[in-house]
Amino acid sequence: MKKNFTLYWPSFVNAELCKDLGVITMIFNKHLNYNSHILCRKNQENYDEVTREGITMHYTIDDDTINNVLENTDILLLIGFYDFNLLMIQRFKSINPKGKVYLKLDLNVHWLGRIVFGQDTLELLNQCSLISVECRNLKKTLHEKWPLKIEYIPNGYYNVGLNKNIEYKEKENTIITVGRLGIYEKATEILLQAFKIAAKELINWKLKLIGGIDPNFQIYVDNFMNINPELKDRIIFTGRINDRELIEEEYRKAKIFCLTSRCEGFPNVFSEAANKGCYIISSDIDPAWDITDDKKYGSIFPINDYVSLANELITVCSNEERLETVCKDIQIYTKENFEWTKLCNKINSFLNENDQILNE
Score class of each variant (00 low, 15 high):
Val69Ala: 06
Lys30Phe: 00
Ile219His: 14
Gln127Leu: 01
Asn165Val: 10
Ser261Asp: 06
Asn29Tyr: 02
Gly298Trp: 01
Phe28Tyr: 12
Pro229Arg: 00
Thr141Arg: 15
Val307Trp: 05
Cys40Trp: 03
Asp214Pro: 02
Ile27Pro: 07
Pro302Glu: 11
Ile166Ala: 06
Glu339Ser: 08
Leu103Thr: 05
Arg262Lys: 12
Tyr220Pro: 03
Glu167Asp: 09
Glu45Phe: 03
Asn159Cys: 10
Arg262Ser: 10
Asp329Ser: 14
Ile332Asp: 13
Asp286His: 10
Lys296His: 11
Glu353Ser: 08
Thr60Phe: 01
Thr65Trp: 00
Asp233Pro: 00
Trp289Ser: 07
Glu249Val: 00
Phe270Val: 03
Asp62Met: 01
Gly99Tyr: 02
Thr334Pro: 04
Leu138Lys: 11
Phe28Met: 15
Met1Gln: 08
Glu185Arg: 10
Thr174Asp: 06
Ile213Trp: 06
Pro10Ile: 01
Gly113Thr: 08
Cys278Glu: 04
Leu21Gly: 04
Asn352Leu: 07
Phe12Ser: 01
Glu172Arg: 07
Tyr279Gly: 09
Phe237Gly: 06
Leu207Ile: 08
Ala198Arg: 08
Val101Gln: 11
Leu32Cys: 11
Asn14Pro: 15
Asp222Ala: 04
Ile280Leu: 09
Gln356Met: 12
His58Pro: 07
His110Ser: 14
Val160Met: 13
Gln119Lys: 15
